[in-house]
Nucleic acid binder design. Structure first.
Lengths: 191, 191
DNA sequence: AATTTCGGAATGAACGTTCATTCTGTTACC
DNA sequence: GGTAACAGAATGAACGTTCATTCCGAAATT
C-alpha cells in the first residue's frame, strides 16, 4: 500500500481499457503502454493478468461501500434506508461510469460467476449491507414474500438496467429521474 | 435454409459452447469437434467467426418472437398483455437456459452493444412488440411518466435478473414464482 | 566530496502457446 | 470423369508471460 506510482498507474490504465474495450480489447502490452510502463513491469506488481483483474474488482468494491454508506442510519425507517442505499448506489454509477462498465464486464465473465457463487454462501463486502437489509425487510413483512435472492435480483435489476441506459447514453438521468428510478425499484419489492 | 445437417449441427455446437463457456472458451476447432465436422467445414457455412456469432443471435431472436406471441391478443386489457408477454418471455428463458445464457453473452460484448445502438433508432424484432406496448401504456397514462427507454429497462431488469438467478441455480422458479416475478415487474412500471 | 559498489526496480525482446483462417489432398456424388 | 463437399494439417498473427540486461539511487569507501 506504500508504492503508489506505477502500481496505481497500471490499475488506472487497466480499468480504463477493460471498461471501454472489454477484457478482449485490452492486451497487457497496451495496458503497459497506457500506464507509461514496460510490459514486464506489470508483473512486478501483479502475478498475472487474472490477479490484476481480480484486484481491480476488489478495489472498486472497497470504493463503493463507504460511498453508499455515507449518511446511512440503521435506525431510519425501512423504506428510507432502501431509498438511501439505492440512490447512493445509482449516483455512484453515474459519477463513475467506467467503474460501472468494469463491474459489468467482470460480472459477465468466468471471474464474476465464480465470485458470485462464493458470495451466495458465506459473504462479505457490499452485499452484506444489502443482504441484511433485505432479510430484515422480509422478517418485518414489508417486502414481498419471496426468496431472498429473488428480492435482491428484483431490486437491483431495474437499477442496473437504468444505470446501463444512462451510461450508454440512451437516457440522461437527472436528479428527478434518479429518485423516480429508486422509487420504481421500491415498488418492485415492496409488499 | 435448405441445407440442414451440417449447418445446423455447427450452430447447435456453437450455441452450447458459447453459452456454457463464453466466447473465449469456444475455439473454432472445438466447435467443429462437437459438431462432428472438420474445422474447415465451418467456413463453408459461415464466412467467419463473427458472422457465426451474429447469425446465432438472429436465429435465437427469431425463435423467441413467435413463442411469446403465442396466445397474445392486442385486444386484451393493457395489464393482461404485459403479464402475458412477460411471463411468456420468462418461461422461454426457463425452458431454454442455453439460449438465455447465449443472449447474455452476446449483449455483453462488442456485438451486443453495436446491435443495441441500431435498435434504439429504427428497429425491428422482439423489441418492436414491446416498444409498441410501452408506447401505448405511456399514452394511456397507465405506466409511470418516464422516458420510454427507462420504462423498458425498469420492466426487463427484474425479469432478467430473476431469470439469471434461476438459470445459475440460485433459486428455482416454479409456476407461482414466475407469476409473482412478472407481477413484480408490473409493479415496477405501473403508475 | 567524489567515486565506486550494489540491490532491486524496470524494461522490452524473445518465447511458447493458442487460435482463426486457409490450403491441400481425399472422398462422395452426379 | 468432373465437380462440389469435406477433413484436418498448415499457417501466421496475436497474446500472456519470462528473463537477461539496463538503469537508478542509495550506501560504502576513499
Amino acid at each position: 500500500m506504500a508504492k503508489p506510482d506505477k502500481r496505481h498507474e497500471i490499475m488506472r490504465a487497466a480499468l480504463d481499457l477493460f471498461a471501454e474495450q472489454g477484457f478482449h480489447g485490452a492486451p497487457m502490452a497496451l495496458i503497459a503502454e497506457r500506464a507509461g510502463v514496460g510490459a514486464g513491469t506489470i508483473y512486478r506488481y501483479f502475478e498475472n493478468r487474472d490477479i490484476l483483474i481480480k484486484e481491480l474488482f476488489n478495489e472498486l468494491e472497497a470504493d463503493i461501500l463507504p460511498f453508499i454508506l455515507d449518511g446511512y442510519s440503521d435506525q431510519a425507517p425501512f423504506r428510507a434506508r432502501f431509498i438511501h442505499l439505492g440512490s447512493r448506489l445509482l449516483r455512484y454509477f453515474i459519477q463513475h461510469p467506467l467503474h460501472f462498465r468494469y463491474l459489468e464486464q467482470f460480472h459477465n465473465s468466468p471471474y464474476g460467476v465464480a465470485h458470485r457463487r462464493d458470495k451466495i454462501l458465506g459473504n462479505e463486502g457490499k452485499c452484506n449491507v444489502f443482504k441484511e437489509l433485505f432479510e430484515q425487510g422480509s422478517a418485518q413483512q414489508v417486502l414481498k414474500d419471496l426468496p431472498l435472492p429473488m428480492l435482491i435480483a428484483l431490486a437491483f435489476g431495474p437499477l442496473l438496467g437504468v444505470a446501463r441506459d444512462h451510461i450508454l447514453g440512451f437516457v440522461r438521468l437527472d436528479e428527478e429521474l434518479i429518485i423516480k428510478t429508486i422509487e420504481a425499484c421500491w415498488d418492485t419489492v415492496k409488499r
